[in-house]
């Protein structure tokens, strides 16, 4: 099989390292999507005119910025570089998993050097926002999503006897122990 068909015809270039954002990125992010709304999205037939661009609940978490963005055409979670441990520089379109208290979520990177916020990672939460009758509902949804994101799932009591028996004589799960066992055999 030809090797060429295995690589995408278009591969985005690796962007320069993203500068850490020191102050609250919300105003810049809001300005960016306002501009996009006014320049390229306002005449799309499926936008929800009951909504407006709003940045919700941005916070500094593990050194990076996490929040949600509402626009008349999407509701997404965002991660912006703040010099912390969540952020990683990736070409546009590349996926990465980011761990939150709720668990790992898949984010996709984007990079547009000319924009107000050049580099960000997003997780598409609600693709079609026509279901929201008002900005209040959209905002409550975004806030609830962020709250769920930062809440650890309840730990289920270990009920199964099998797993506890397995735990007792289960080999040490560390990577080192694993390789030792493999090497000994």
């Amino acid at each position: 099989m030809n090797k060429r068909i295995r690589t995408p015809a278009y591969q985005a270039p690796q962007p320069p390292p993203a500068g850490a954002i020191a102050e609250d990125p919300a105003p810049r992010l809001e300005a960016m999507y306002r501009r996009i709304w006014e320049t390229s999205m306002h005449d799309m037939p499926w936008v929800n005119r009951a909504l407006s661009v709003e940045v919700v609940g941005f916070r500094h978490w593990k050194g990076d910025w996490v929040g949600a963005v509402i626009t008349p055409w999407f509701l997404n979670l965002f991660v912006l570089p703040g010099g912390g441990e969540l952020w990683s520089d990736r070409p546009s379109g590349e996926r990465c998993n980011i761990a939150f208290p709720a668990g790992e979520l898949e984010f996709i990177a984007d990079d547009d050097a000319s924009a107000e916020i050049p580099a960000y990672q997003y997780c598409a939460l609600i693709t079609q926002v026509s279901q929201f009758d008002s900005q209040d509902i959209a905002r409550a949804t975004a806030e609830a999503a962020l709250e769920a994101l930062f809440t650890a799932p309840p730990v289920v009591e270990e009920a199964s006897p099998v797993s506890s028996v397995a735990d007792a004589d289960q080999p040490d799960p560390s990577r080192r122990a694993f390789f030792r066992r493999v090497a000994r055999r």
Binding site: A140, A144, P153
Partner: peptide
């Protein structure tokens, strides 16, 4: 560790409920 899809389900589900 529940998969990324399940986490998204939990997050979006909570959000949709609140909305």
């Amino acid at each position: 560790t529940i998969g990324a899809a399940a986490v998204l389900a939990a997050v979006a589900g909570a959000a949709a409920g609140a909305g």
